[in-house]
Each structure stands twice: as C-alpha cells, then as structure tokens.
Simulated scan of single mutants.
Amino acid sequence: MTLSANPQPLDFVAAFSDPEAAARYADGPRRFVPGFEALHRMTGILLAERAPPDARVLVLGAGGGLELRALAEAHPGWTLVGVDPAGAMLRQAERTLGPLMARVTLVEGYIEDAPAGPFDAATCLLTLHFLDAGAREETVRGIHRRLRPGAPFVAAHGSFPQGAGSRARWLARYEAYAVASGADPEQAMRARAAVDANLPALDPDQDEAILRSGGFRDVEPFFAAFTWRGWVGRA
C-alpha cells in the first residue's frame, strides 16, 4: 500500500518486517485510506451485532495494532488474537496497545498459524489485497473454519474496478487523496506506482464472490471510499 518507492516486484512481508517501516506505519493508513478511524468504529459496531460481550475475536493482518487497539478500547469485555506474518509489526502492536495487551495474544504467521478457535467474530482489514484470488479464497476459508456458526466477519481492503482505463483512473484518485491528506507528493506518486506494479487488486464483485465461496453468507457491503471496499458476513 505505502511500502516502497520501488515499482519493481515487492516482498510485502519483508517490507513490513523493517522496524523503521513498522514504526512509521501508523501515518500511512490515515493518509491513504479515507475514513480509516471510522472504518475501525464501524467494524466494532458490526461485530457487536452478533458477538457476545465477552467475545473472543480473531484479527488477521493485525499489523501495528491500530485495529486491535480500537476494538479493545470500544469493547472492554472482548479478548483478541492478532495474527500477522511480520514480527516487526507485531512488536509495534505491543507498543501501540500498551496495557491493553493484557487482553490480546499476538501470533506471528498466517491464517494456518492462528488458533483453531472457535472464535465469536473475526476481521481482516487492509490485508486481503496482498493475495491473489486463489490465496485470498483459501485465507477466507481458513477464517471461516475458525468461527462459530453465525459469527460475524468483517473484511475491508483495496478493491476497485479493474477494467480498461478504470484501474489507472482509480489509482490516480488514490494518489490524489493521499496528497490532499498531507502525504508528500513524491511519496504518494511512488506509493501509487508500487500498488500498480505489485498489488493483485480485484473488482469489488469478485471480492464479494470470494467471501461467499469461502463460506460466508448474508454478505453485505458497508464501506466504499475511493479504492477501498468493506463487507460484513456471517459464518
């Protein structure tokens, strides 16, 4: 998303494993994702519709801990398991969470490394866009297997029209929003080039179909902001 100035193929896990990049991570989403904090608040509301007050929540792609902190602060009875393949990001999450770590377990790895559950709810924010369609569906199925029947799942990530001309137009808007939000114009241009060269983004209808084929029902869109989309469904 905002990982590198290099438009050549990237190893996203390696990029996020850089401690300096992890320490700077909190600035990126706020500038590149419209409504970033609101997305976290909405996610908590949607999960709470079906999750109990003492829910155990799986957070896949826990990153630097911003989502974990938002959920833990809004729902003091919840315990959370955050999973991420980048150790540097998990160490940043520990710093972000501070005393909230008493209710959070962090796991370095991918969905197959997550506890078997069953969990009462799950999220995967700003993560699935790093995976191609096949790996994306496998990951969604892995989340589904770890949830109680009827448990809510919220996913949100880069998802925008990929047709001729459409991808370039939406990526230009991605760049323009970042600049309007205070990002350095050169950084925003490089981020756009990196996304264009490396991110296997899909059309929103393809992403929704993957959630359904991965086992989720009653899938509904709830978030749309330039190149970003979000859905809620239940196991």
Rank of each mutant, 00 (worst) to 15 (best):
A93I: 03
V83Q: 03
E112T: 12
G64T: 07
P76L: 01
G109H: 05
A51E: 04
R41E: 13
A23I: 04
G98W: 04
H75G: 07
G44I: 03
E49W: 09
G77T: 05
D54F: 02
Y25C: 04
D120E: 10
H75S: 02
L97R: 10
R24M: 12
A74W: 04
G65W: 12
D84R: 04
F32V: 09
P53E: 11
Y25P: 12
T127A: 14
E67G: 12
C124A: 15
Q92K: 14
D120I: 05
P118Q: 03
T127M: 14
G61Q: 06
L126K: 14
F32A: 12
E49A: 14
A88S: 15
E112R: 13
Q92G: 05
G63L: 05
G109F: 08
R103Y: 01
L97K: 03
L125E: 09
T96E: 09
L125P: 06
A122C: 03
P52D: 03
A26K: 08
M42L: 15
D54T: 09
I111E: 10
M42P: 03
Y110Q: 12
T127S: 15
L60H: 05
I45F: 14
S17W: 07
F36R: 13
P34Q: 09
A121L: 07
A22G: 10
A38T: 15
G109I: 03
A62H: 11
E49F: 09
G77H: 06
E73Q: 13
L128I: 10
L97V: 07
L68Q: 11
F36C: 15
L100K: 04
I45Y: 11
P99M: 08
A116C: 00
A22T: 09
D27V: 14
E73V: 15
A38F: 04
G77S: 07
H75F: 01
P19V: 13
I111P: 04
E49I: 02
E94G: 11
R91G: 12
G44H: 11
S17T: 08
M101G: 02
L68S: 12
R91D: 15
P99C: 05
P19F: 12
M42R: 14
G82Q: 10
D120M: 02
A114Y: 01
G35E: 08
Y110H: 11
D84C: 04
A121I: 00
A21Q: 14
R103Q: 03
A74K: 07
P29R: 10
D27W: 12
P76H: 03
A23E: 14
L71H: 02
V107K: 04
D113A: 10
A38E: 11
A88F: 12
V57E: 07
P19D: 07
L66R: 15
D18C: 11
A70R: 09
F32Y: 15
A102L: 02
P99T: 07
G64E: 08
G65F: 11
H75I: 00
T96D: 04
S17L: 06
L106R: 07
S17F: 08
A70D: 08
